[in-house]
């Protein structure tokens, strides 16, 4: 299945270099039945780099099962501002 992925700030740099466009958006092909965690692994990202997951505009967990056409946003963790 194909999902739409948007990466933000440091994740854009970690994964996106040469792959994502300037907005950090890339299309990602995944095996059917993949979870967010599978997606994170497929990106070669260490889980501790992912602090917030949004799927189709809603906060989601690593175990969330993805579907064709889902829109996923990943953010690195922050502890306050």
């Amino acid at each position: 299945m194909l999902i739409k992925l948007r990466l933000h700030d440091i994740l854009k740099e970690k994964v996106g270099a040469g792959r994502a466009d300037g907005d950090g958006i890339l299309k990602q092909q995944l095996r059917d039945g993949s979870t967010v965690n599978d997606l994170v692994v497929s990106l070669g990202l260490n889980r501790e780099y992912v602090g917030l997951i949004i799927v189709n505009g809603r906060q989601a967990a690593f175990e969330f099962s993805l579907n064709e056409g889902d829109s996923v946003e990943l953010f690195s963790p922050m502890s306050g501002g």
Binding site: I10, E48, I54, M78, G81
Partner: peptide
């Protein structure tokens, strides 16, 4: 640490805005 070694040094606290906006 990804927070203290990368996110805060480069983008500082304003990086929080994308996160709070998203949730």
């Amino acid at each position: 640490n990804p927070v203290t070694g990368e996110a805060y040094p480069k983008y500082g606290t304003p990086a929080m805005a994308t996160r709070t906006n998203a949730i």
